[in-house]
Every structure is written in structure tokens, then in C-alpha cells.
Nucleic acid binder design. Sequence first.
DNA 1: CTGAAAGCGCTTACAG
DNA 2: CTGAAAGCGCTTACAG
Lengths: 335, 335
Amino acid sequence: MLVVTQQQIADALKISRETVTKALQDHPKVCSKTKDKVRALADEMGYIPNFTARNLSSKKTRTIGVIVPKISHSFFSSVLELMYKTVRKFGYNLIPMVSFEEKQNEIKNIKTLLSMRVDGIIANISQDTTDHDIYLELKKHGIPVVFFDRVVESDFFSTVTTDDRKASYEIMSYALSKGYRKPAHLAGYVNINIGRERRQGFLDALESFKITPNPSWIIEGGFSEETRSGNARHLLSSDDRPDLIFAFNDSIAKCVYDAADMFKIKIPDELGVIGFGNLEFGSILNPKLSTVALPLQTIADESVRLIIDHVEKKEGNTIKHINLTPEIIIRESCR
Amino acid sequence: MLVVTQQQIADALKISRETVTKALQDHPKVCSKTKDKVRALADEMGYIPNFTARNLSSKKTRTIGVIVPKISHSFFSSVLELMYKTVRKFGYNLIPMVSFEEKQNEIKNIKTLLSMRVDGIIANISQDTTDHDIYLELKKHGIPVVFFDRVVESDFFSTVTTDDRKASYEIMSYALSKGYRKPAHLAGYVNINIGRERRQGFLDALESFKITPNPSWIIEGGFSEETRSGNARHLLSSDDRPDLIFAFNDSIAKCVYDAADMFKIKIPDELGVIGFGNLEFGSILNPKLSTVALPLQTIADESVRLIIDHVEKKEGNTIKHINLTPEIIIRESCR
DNA sequence: CTGAAAGCGCTTACAG
DNA sequence: CTGAAAGCGCTTACAG
């Protein structure tokens, strides 16, 4: 590595290394003439600061770690991309890590981020994470954590969530108002907030329409393709089948479309379908899928803003729970 | 930050700090008893290595930087996710950066990665990158670069590409063999290899079918939604319109579907459509889109393998150009 | 097999 | 406004 160090700049200019550091930092106590000289030469010599050295001595990295369960899912890739933009405005860098929905990886990722000495961590917990000791430990180490979407519910951590319960209630109410009377729910895991909230919104809507939920029509399931499709087919295979399926997410709704196709059940006439997440393919499905859109930009912005508030201990830097309102998107999948 | 340092472990064990380092590194010259003791205590005390310090003194970070133009596009998010997995097998970390298709950001990203002292960089150049001085400079700094997909064609850098020309030729030949005779191409930029190759494959197929290309039916265009849709509509708005459109990628093909819908042109009977990239929505479109699938796993694996070969100067560590074969996926969009 | 010495490149009080 | 000193936590030859 052909490195130019501050020392070399100092030697060339016959000043001390410390003055170079300060000039480069735009420190107030260096006169502007010196600063200009230093910066001009730094450019010319192709000086590139060594963050590893800087971080070691300053104890700050201006870097935020992010932990997501997956990247190749448009919710995560979109939010990550937006976070890259937002973080940059604050002069920070972003280091994303992927847990692949496994707690063990999540823990490893956290350790790696700690080793890298990130200033703070934004996290979205993996599907099978139930205890949160590792995050409490982070807290003990003095490194702030902000959760988004899939969160650890605790007074120790700030969170950015969406009001999935209300959104689910509203879109289900819309569907029920259209006359469907036998609603089912292909649900998410109840140990994660988003699974619980969407299910609760579903139940709220049933209650307000005085419909008794059929327990065997509420199927909890994972995110794997096979499980989803199996559950969808199972629901539709019986003669006494639901006339409305509220899917935990759009991908599961897509499985319902496939299953309906298989049994020659017509959407929306014989079966209403509702998704959640507003993935791109929803408007390509035939009929177009009604779903709920998450405010991606705001999720990214608020998560970043919160973590930086915590890192920099800005005033009003207290634990906050931000709950955003998703948008109901009515298309064609409920008559 | 509640930090446990090697010094503290050494003090507790009444041995030297250097022995602790070596024990933790599994250095051969430390007896296994000492190693066990050190490791047990390190675990107990919650020791977390400080990479910034380690990197500073060892001059190695075991970290690979990746530069992509976007993340929220399934090609990139999928390849990135696979790279995370592959890199981990080699005991490396990955730091992705996003250029947002702008050369200025690409340069900034490279500087940041240099400051972080990554051992090597895997890159996919942005749309408007035409000169590659920055990469040559990287080379001069002794840091290896591997390009994938959108590459700098040069003998100085290893590349991982797909044979888009051949794939385009083959899928176009298939379509032409079905009887279409008025082919158009919504093309990519000719200054990037993938734009050039796909266009060339299109022309190759026309030549082998003795069809003279109509220059006004080859429209170069960007990746923006408006441009794409505008171009698609433009092609189909005239009475003398193409009966086959080869789109540079699936998203553009989707715009062709929309335009065809607008003009009530039936796919595949009145218009054949071909995409490239095999995005998820292709099989949801009606009719299902014929397209070309890229070998994502192999692209990720080979890129990582190459960069690590270069970083570690493994034997046979020479500049290589790996050209993979994509897969033709025939569905319903050509009769 | 273990330890003492030197250094990685930068920053941070502190003194002048 | 500038500089000398000390240190961040770790690794790398080298000596014993």
C-alpha cells in the first residue's frame, strides 16, 4: 500500500504532525493559511486518512452497524438503501450485516460490529430470536441500539415501528364491509411484534363485525416458500373453506393466488385476498392485490435519526417509541 | 464502552500481553495449556477483539469492500446476500457501498473503503462511469479490484461476467424462429459492456436470420422509469411498428407490457417480448415473460474467490476473466 | 515456549 | 496559533 501519512505532509511543509492533524480536522486553533497549505498538499500527495488509526485514538468511528435478517427482500434492500442516503447526510458510514434469520448469526454479527467499534447499531431481529440478552449486553457496553420493524419491546431501546394492528384492522374492515363473512389469516409468528399486531388487527375487525374467529383458520407459519404454499392449499382444499384470506405478507398472498388457481377458485368473487407490505409484484398479480404499504423512507430516516441522537447524546436523547402509520392500498383482490 | 483488553487478561493470568495475543491467535508457539487458560478467561471476561487496533498494527483487515450502483434491485441484493455467505467461509467481512449510479459517489465510496483499509474491492461500475482512473489508482496503491457484471474491460483487472451476447443471440434466435420478423431493441448504454453485448447478440441473431436492423428501432436508454415507458410507447405508437421487442432488462420488458396494454396490442400474438435478468415478477406477468437468468450464485462465488486469491496472493494469482453462461428461460411471451 | 521492545497512524489534552 | 508527549489496543520480529 502506497500510503501518504500526515507525517510526510508535515515533513514536506516543515511543520509538526499535530498541526497537520488539526488543519485536516478544520480545528479552530490553526490559522487558515496553514490549513490551506496543508490541504492543498494533502490533495496533491493523494493523502487518504487512515480510519483504523483515527478510530483507535479517537474512540469514535462515525459508523453505524445495521443488522437485517435478509437483504434479498425488497423491504430490507429498500430500507437499507434509504439508510445509506440518510446516514451520509450526517457524515456517518453504514455497515450492514445479515443474520439469515438465525439468532446465532445475529449474535456473531453483533460481535463483529463491536469489534469494528461501530458507534451504534440499528437492528431488525431475526425470526427465531426470542431472548434479547445480547442486546442488553450491548446496552451495558454503552453502545446504543435502535430497533425497526421487528423489534425488542423494552423500555431500554428506542424503536421505529408501524401501526400494523390499526392498518390490519382497517383493511380487514374494508374487506368485511364488502360482504365476506368467513375470514382466515395466514399469520406470522406470535413471538414477533409484527406477527402479533397484524393478527390482533385481524381479530379486532372480526369483533367489530361480530364474527367469531375460527381458530383452525388462523395458521401461524414461517417465511419459507413450502410452508406458505402448503398452508394456503390446506385452507382452500376443504369444502367448508374461507371466503377471505388475510395474508401476513404479500409473498404469502401470492401463494394464496397460486392455491386458488389450483382449485379453480375465483378471486375476488369466491375468495377475497389481502396482503401486507406492498411488494412490487402486487400490482402485477391478476387481480391486483390489495395490501398495506409501509412508509419506507420514514422508517429509514427515523431509525437513523434516533441512533445518531443516541450516539451523540443530543439533547432530548431519551428512549423513544415511534409508531408510524402505514397506508392502505385498495386494489382488486376484494370485490 | 466497557472494554476488556488483552492487557487485563494478561494481568489476571500474570503472563505477558504478547502471550495472550498469541494464544488468542492460536499461534503454534504457545503451549496448549496456556491457550486454554487464556481463552477460557477471555470468554468469561467477555473479551472482544478490537479490530481497529488489530488492523492498524497488522496492516490487514480481512475485509472486502463492495461497490454497487443500487441495492434495492433484486440482482444486486441477491448477489450481495450470496457474497455475504461466501466471504464468511473465508473468514472475511464484507462492507458494501452504494454509488446510486453516480460516478462521484463511486469515487467517494472508494476513498472511504481505502480509509477503512479494506484488503480488496469488488465493484460493479455505475451507469455514467466512463473513465476508470480511480481504479487504476487503486491498482497503484496495491489494492486488488475485481469487477462483476458491469466491468472495466482491461488487462489490469479480473472480471466476472456472463456471456450476454451469446444469451441474447440464442433467445432472439428462438423468437425469430417463431416467425417474428420486425424486431426492435430497447437497449442499454453502449458504453457499458452489458449494454454493448446484449445489443450485439440481438444484431447477431438478426444477421443469422438475414434481417436488416431498423436503426430507429434500436433505442438506447437509461434505467429510469419514465424514459423506459416513453420509449416503449414510442415504439408501439406507430402503425409501422415492431412485432418483437427485445428489452435490455425485465423492468423495461414490463414497460413494454404496459405500453402494449395501452394500445391494445396482444402479447404474444401481435407482439413478442423478451426480457433479461429473470426478475421475480416475470413469471407473474400475463403472459409469462421469456427472459435470461443470470447465475447469481456463481457470480458471487467467483467474484469473492478471485478477490481473495488476489488479496492473499495465492498461487496462480493472475488477472482472470471469467465468463459465465446464463440460462435461457422460455415462457409465454413469444408465440 | 515466553517476554521486552518497537511500532502501526492518528488524536488528545497540555504547555508554550 | 504551534508543538512535544502520551497513548489508543494490538501485532510483529527478535531475543532469550
